[in-house]
């Protein structure tokens, strides 16, 4: 469904994503893992079409990502990006104006789950509430693929179960979910595949249950094996 072909992105002299080739299939929840600055966010922005690759390309259903793919791929950036004048309601209306797969009813349902109200001003939201709003408005789209960059950032321990359940409830067999996080334990049970990225390069893409069966290793263990020596 989403294929990265030798994708490379450089910023000046720095290479943020370095020849990443990767195939992501629908019906799976992928955890994209790596320390901060490893290239997860940059790769997602390339896949969302916000960044243009220096070399290589990302394809969605066989076509290079474009205006067309934005109709079917719901991307949530890790930074807050709503206009400062917006209320929670304005954010929903904005998505409704631009995304055909957005459902305002579903948005209202998600807001309720997240304990947010339409009248709140985005400027006045705490970081936790902002994180929830971003998830609510993104998941209110009936997209083919969801890419959430750090969905658990800023969300307290108790609310994480809620968020996980919410994300899982939309993970059907014809959807692709890609979640990046540095909170590896949060992703252990909900992901079935993991993509490990280090210094802009793909380390491996593994099936988690297979890895547990064959090697008796959890995703967090594998994370430590890969990055342990670099992070001390």
């Amino acid at each position: 469904m989403l294929e990265s072909k030798e994708v490379t992105k450089t910023f000046g002299a720095k290479t943020a994503v370095d020849h990443i080739s990767l195939k992501l299939e629908k019906g799976h929840v992928y955890a994209m893992l790596g320390p901060n600055g490893s290239g997860k966010t940059t790769w997602m922005k390339l896949a969302a079409g916000l960044l243009k690759p220096t070399y290589g390309m990302v394809c969605f259903n066989g076509e290079q990502v474009s205006i067309e793919s934005r109709k079917h791929v719901a991307y949530m950036s890790t930074e807050p990006y709503f206009y400062t004048w917006m209320t929670v309601k304005d954010v929903g209306k904005y998505y409704q104006d631009f995304f055909e797969d957005f459902s305002y009813d579903r948005y209202l349902k998600l807001l309720k789950q997240m304990e947010l109200t339409e009248k709140l001003k985005t400027k006045a939201l705490s970081s936790g509430m902002m994180a929830k709003l971003k998830i609510a408005v993104t998941m209110a789209r009936d997209a083919q693929a969801y890419m959430l960059d750090e969905p658990f950032n800023g969300i307290d321990l108790l609310a994480r179960d809620e968020i996980r359940a919410c994300i899982l409830s939309y993970a059907t067999e014809d959807k692709l979910l890609l979640l990046s996080s540095h909170l590896v334990e949060e992703m252990e049970a909900i992901a079935d595949r993991a993509v490990f990225i280090s210094e802009g390069r793909l380390v491996e893409c593994v099936d988690l249950e297979e890895m547990r069966t064959r090697q008796g290793v959890s995703m967090a263990d594998r994370y430590r094996q890969i990055y342990g020596h670099t992070e001390g």
């Binding site: 969302a48 205006i67 934005r70 991307y75 930074e79 990006y81 400062t84 631009f98 995304f99």
Partner: peptide, 13 residues
Amino acid sequence: TKQGYMLFMTPNS
């Protein structure tokens, strides 16, 4: 700025 995502993530050329 990040606010640009709001504009450029929409399916508009």
